[in-house]
């Protein structure tokens, strides 16, 4: 792990990394899919910091760690370019604009929120966000539900969420535990160990996990 030994070349990279992601930050609207294209353009095409082939590694890491795919990708590229300091520079860069924008938006709203029409507009937006969540749920379901166990897991988890106050920690730890146990048994009995739905999508599309928003 590159931690202590920061070379002077890496040190000079830090402001550049910060600025590159500062520019990407505001364009992370709409989440995963749209943002990957922006990052690829800035980091691969414009600055030549990474090769297109490395994008696959980035997506794999960014998708397996918790958190938004935008912040995770920034951390990955920043780390590749400038070690831990680079990762911090990239994450700060991509976070600062959205941090400022959401605070400004919220302040503007609290200034106007006594107007009935502003509240009505926000209610409309609330409904739209619910629609966006449903679209994300649909995409995630298509990528995750394909055999009896996955359907049962999703149904059981939804029932737990709706009917109990059990902490979600147990679900997030329990799902992988069940998955690993079942796959372990299937493997030892020489059964099929498919862990992903059969995909008709091309390699390129499969590389961009649009369900991570």
């Amino acid at each position: 792990m590159k931690l202590a030994a920061v070379t002077s070349a890496e040190l000079r990279m830090l402001p550049q990394i910060f600025i590159a992601f500062l520019k990407i930050g505001p364009s992370t609207f709409g989440g995963g899919y749209a943002m990957m294209a922006t990052i690829e353009k800035e980091v691969v095409e414009r600055r030549g910091w990474m090769k297109t082939e490395e994008m696959g590694d980035m997506v794999s890491v960014a998708g397996s760690a918790p958190g938004g795919v935008a912040v995770n990708s920034a951390a990955f590229i920043g780390y590749r370019l400038g070690g831990v300091a680079g990762a911090i520079a990239a994450v700060s860069g991509i976070t600062l604009p959205t941090f400022a924008i959401i605070l400004l938006l919220s302040l503007t709203y609290s200034f106007f929120k006594d107007y009935v029409k502003v509240q009505a507009a926000l209610k409309g937006i609330h409904a739209a966000v619910v629609a966006l969540i449903l679209v994300a749920a649909w995409k995630m379901a298509r990528a995750s539900l394909f055999d009896t166990l996955t359907y049962m897991l999703a149904a059981a988890a939804l029932a737990v969420l709706l009917l109990t106050n059990l902490s979600s920690v147990w679900l997030i730890l329990g799902g992988p535990a069940i998955g690993m146990a079942v796959m372990g048994i299937r493997q030892s009995r020489k059964f099929d160990v498919r862990t992903e739905p059969a995909s008709e999508r091309s390699e390129k599309e499969a590389m961009l996990p649009e369900y991570y928003i």
């Binding site: 359907y151 897991l153 999703a154 799902g175 862990t195």
Partner: peptide, 12 residues
């Protein structure tokens, strides 16, 4: 396998 079990939870 872990993600196989985790993804349905995320869907929920």
């Amino acid at each position: 396998s872990a993600f196989y079990g985790l993804r349905p939870i995320i869907t929920a």
